Amino acid sequence: EVYKVKIKIERVLPNGEKVEEEITIEVEGMSEEELLALARELAAEPGVRIKEIEIEKLPP
């Protein structure tokens, strides 16, 4: 199964400015739980906050 994972994050820059970013990846052969863990890892940097995680199962 192939999933499209869209992660919206908010990053706080050293000057205090907040910037929103969106990361989209396609992943194959992982469960939804593994995808959530991967998304959290991607956003685990200091000053980064996850705003939204969207997981979509793509048709075969």
Rank of each mutant, 00 (worst) to 15 (best):
P46K: 10
E41W: 13
I9M: 08
E32V: 14
V2Y: 13
P46W: 15
G47H: 08
K18S: 11
I53A: 01
V2D: 01
K8V: 10
E54V: 15
E52R: 13
I23H: 05
E22Q: 12
I55E: 00
G16E: 02
P46I: 09
V5G: 01
P60T: 10
L38M: 12
V48L: 12
A43W: 08
T24Q: 06
E1D: 08
V19Y: 07
I7F: 15
P60H: 11
I53P: 00
R11V: 02
E26N: 06
I7W: 03
K4Y: 05
M30H: 08
V19G: 03
P59T: 14
L36M: 12
K4C: 03
G47P: 01
K51N: 05
I9Q: 01
G29P: 07
E32A: 10
Y3N: 01
V19R: 11
G29R: 06
I50P: 00
V12F: 09
M30R: 05
E54Y: 15
R11Y: 06
L36Y: 15
I25S: 02
P46T: 10
T24L: 12
S31H: 06
I25K: 04
L42S: 03
T24S: 06
V27K: 06
V12H: 08
I55W: 09
L38Q: 02
V2C: 04
N15H: 04
I50S: 00
I7G: 00
A37G: 12
E28C: 05
N15E: 04
A43D: 06
P60L: 04
R40K: 04
R40F: 06
T24K: 08
E21L: 11
L13M: 09
V5M: 15
G16H: 03
A37P: 02
E17F: 11
K57M: 13
K57N: 05
I25G: 02
P60M: 03
I55A: 02
K57R: 06
E26C: 05
I50L: 08
G29C: 04
I25Y: 05
E56N: 07
V19W: 07
I23S: 01
E52F: 14
E56G: 07
V12K: 10
L13A: 06
P59Y: 14
E21H: 07
A39D: 00
A37E: 04
V19F: 05
P60W: 01
V2W: 13
E26S: 15
I25L: 07
E45R: 15
E28Y: 14
I53D: 00
E32T: 14
V27Y: 08
P60F: 01
L58Q: 06
E17H: 14
V12Q: 12
S31T: 06
I55D: 00
Y3E: 00
P60D: 09
I9A: 01
E32N: 14
Y3G: 01
L58S: 09
I25A: 02
E28N: 10
G16T: 01
I50C: 02
G47T: 08
A39I: 08
R49L: 11
P46N: 11
E34H: 08
A39N: 01
I25R: 06
L42Y: 15
R11L: 03
E32H: 12
V5D: 00
M30P: 04
R49N: 11
V48M: 06
V27I: 12
K8R: 10
P60Q: 12
P59W: 13
A37D: 06
S31K: 10
V19Q: 10
A39M: 14
A43F: 10
E22W: 09
E41V: 15
E33S: 15
A43I: 13
I23N: 01
A37K: 13
K18N: 08
G16A: 02
V27D: 02
E52D: 14
K8W: 15
K51A: 05
L13V: 03
E1Q: 12
E45C: 13
V27M: 12
L58V: 07
R11N: 01
L38P: 01
E28M: 12
I53S: 00
E32L: 10
N15T: 12
E54G: 08
V19A: 05
I50Q: 00
E34N: 12
L35G: 11
E54L: 15
N15L: 03
V2S: 07
K57E: 04
K51I: 12
M30G: 11
I53T: 01
V12M: 05
E45A: 12
E52N: 11
E10P: 00
P60N: 06
E34C: 08
R49Q: 09
V2R: 13
V48F: 05
I53E: 00
E10Y: 13
L13S: 08
R49C: 06
E41H: 13
P14D: 11
E41D: 13
A37W: 13
E17W: 12
L36H: 04
E17M: 12
K6F: 11
V2A: 09
E33V: 15
E52I: 10
K18A: 09
A43Q: 06
I9R: 03
M30F: 10
E10L: 07
Y3P: 01
E56C: 07
I50D: 00
E21C: 09
A44N: 10
R49I: 10
Y3F: 07
K4D: 00
L58C: 06
K18V: 09
G47K: 02
I50R: 00
